[in-house]
């Protein structure tokens, strides 16, 4: 293991006298390393712990001094007050927009990525560079013209408008991620299929895409999460309460209502994070391999 080597250096045959010293120093290093990791973890997770802790406190205890890390009078009251129709509606809107965006961006992205990976297209690198660069295009600049377009097309205050918005800001990443994946798939499988007389479409849809399932999953999760996070389109392209996705809905309906009621705000925060948390916990392996493969190669 290189990790072992990193830490201890190489001491192939330690003599008896120094063995004790060696073991002790090894132990000390190990303890301090563990302490360091635990400390970093504590600092990093403190906000999340504080969020959970606050969400289970009655409001009176929220402002207690000194602060309580473990709620003395735990209650789930803050959670139960939130289950209003409105919050459910926001969840539903976000799920619909997120799923549709994930399907559209991953679908369109997979097709294009396959073409870019397999065919010697003129200007292939330029196309890839354009996709990469478009990630950095100012989103408000896009929104200005999209807003004017959507007014004309009647797409304001619709799911379709939001789905288009969320798709175009994630499509470039999908293309990159999936292209890197296709690059790693051996082309021989397809060549064999062609020899057997399979059409290109059949090969793509029945042979290649099923093999790409992990990458497609990673891409879809990425789009869904981005959509779940997105505030601006939801704020600007939607004007009725019932159509708002979560972030816009929360900033519109709940921030005023719960101002200062931190236990309820934290309960709300926990509930909004939970679906994404579950998604990642279930698909963590898929997602990690997808993201790291894409990024490390890129």
């Amino acid at each position: 293991m290189n990790a072992e080597a990193l830490r201890t250096g190489s001491k192939p045959l330690p003599r008896r006298r120094s063995e004790v010293v060696y073991r002790l120093s090894r132990l000390a290093t190990s303890i301090s390393l563990h302490a360091l990791v635990v400390a970093s973890l504590a600092i990093l997770l403190l906000p999340i712990v504080w969020m959970l802790s606050t969400s289970f406190k009655p409001l009176a205890d929220v402002f207690s001094y000194p602060p309580q890390f473990i709620p003395r009078n735990p209650t789930v009251e803050s959670y139960t007050t939130q289950f209003t129709g409105l919050l459910g509606r926001y969840f539903l809107n976000s799920v619909i927009v997120g799923l549709l965006s994930a399907i559209l961006a991953t679908g369109a992205g997979a097709l294009a990525a396959y073409g870019l990976s397999r065919y010697r297209l003129p200007g292939r690198n330029a196309i890839l560079m354009f996709f990469m660069a478009s990630l950095a295009f100012p989103i408000p600049l896009l929104m200005i013209s999209m807003y004017l377009m959507f007014v004309q097309l009647g797409l304001l205050n619709t799911y379709i408008g939001l789905v288009i918005g969320h798709t175009v800001i994630t499509l470039p990443v999908c293309v990159w991620l999936l292209k890197n994946f296709f690059d790693q798939l051996p082309v021989e499988v397809e060549e064999a299929a062609f020899v057997d007389g399979a059409s290109r479409a059949y090969t793509l849809f029945r042979i290649v895409l099923p093999m790409a399932r992990p990458a497609l999953g990673a891409s879809a999760i990425f789009v869904f999460v981005t959509s779940w996070n997105e505030l601006l389109f939801g704020l600007t392209f939607v004007s009725s309460t019932s159509m708002r996705p979560l972030p816009a809905g929360i900033s519109m309906s709940f921030l005023t209502e719960f101002e200062g009621a931190w236990s309820e705000m934290m309960a709300l925060s926990v509930m909004v994070s939970l679906p994404i948390f579950l998604l990642f916990t279930v698909f963590q392996r898929t997602f990690m391999s997808g993201v790291t493969a894409g990024a490390v190669k890129g």
Partner: peptide
């Protein structure tokens, strides 16, 4: 009923 917080009411009315 469409909820709009006071802070955002002018903007939302304009957008709509």
């Amino acid at each position: 009923l469409n909820d709009v917080p006071f802070d955002q009411a002018l903007k939302q009315a304009t957008v709509a």
